[in-house]
Design a protein around this nucleic acid. Structure first.
Length: 259
DNA sequence: ATGGTCGTGTTACGA
């Protein structure tokens, strides 16, 4: 089984790239973030023609998440139960796998803008609620994967220039502590289960030729509960779509499970 | 050097 996550920064603009990518990478499930569209205009027909089911939680202009899956999904939960939030950032599903159910939680975590901003306060509060939600989900569904754009680079290895970024948004100690709290639930960063080349990132700013300079951060992650981590045979970032014309600023991340 | 480039939807805002 292969599961993937990709912040597409507008599904309207990126739909052709998503369909091309799925044709070349027929993963079992693809979690999308930043749809930037309402549910009324979600391109369901095109995705079904590509052989995928889809569930989605969109909104106008900002945010929006979807799960595309080869298998039917059930028990769809949108948002963080008990945490009121007009921003559509989370959708969870259960994959009906022949090798047993897998719970997928797809998240577009807040960016935070700057460490002295209201959005930073929102980000840390959101992470506290998300952590509690994942704790409860994990108790009910031991085979859980959490995929998406975390907007946190967990370690200096995940930053192209750690000295330049020190203390900034996406790397600040409170944000890294919030990420560590997820790991402390018993989750593993699938990417770090394996030896990896240096300077692997998943996001590059559109400005200043950041991609050409590989001036990026690794902020898109696939976290796995212990029963799934023990089945994981690979976890990679696919830089190829970032090289295309009119790319998303994020690259897809993919984990392979021996299921 | 506080810039720059996207996407959405207006001429600002979020990332």
């Amino acid at each position: 089984m292969q599961i993937a996550a990709w912040n597409v920064n507008s599904l309207k603009v990126r739909l052709p790239q998503v369909l091309d990518w799925l044709a070349a990478n027929p993963v079992d499930a693809l979690c999308l973030q930043e749809l930037k569209m309402t549910d009324e205009v979600f391109p369901l027909a095109a995705i079904q023609e590509a052989g995928y089911h889809a569930v989605f939680s969109g909104q106008k202009t900002y945010n929006g998440v979807a799960v595309l899956s080869r298998l039917p999904v059930r028990d769809v939960v949108c948002g963080i139960p008990g945490y009121e939030d007009p921003q559509k950032r989370v959708i969870a599903v259960t994959l009906d796998s022949p090798q047993g159910d897998v719970r997928l939680v797809n998240a577009y975590c807040p960016n935070g803008q700057a460490v002295d901003s209201d959005k930073y306060v929102y980000k840390l509060g959101w992470y506290a609620a998300f952590t509690e939600y994942l704790k409860n989900t994990l108790a009910a569904s031991p085979r859980m994967a959490v995929l998406g754009d975390y907007n946190i680079a967990p370690d200096d290895r995940d930053v192209h220039d750690p000295a330049k970024w020190a203390g900034d948004i996406l790397v600040s100690p409170p944000e890294r502590a919030a990420f560590q709290a997820l790991l402390d639930l018993g989750l593993s960063d699938s990417f770090r289960l394996f030896e990896q080349p240096e300077k692997i990132f998943s996001w590059w700013d559109y400005r200043q030729f950041a991609f050409r300079r590989n001036a990026g951060l690794r902020i898109d992650h696939i976290l796995l509960s212990a029963p799934l981590a023990s089945t994981c045979t690979a976890s990679i970032v696919d830089k190829a779509p970032r090289k295309l014309e009119q790319p998303s600023d994020h690259a897809p991340v993919v984990a392979t499970l021996a299921l």
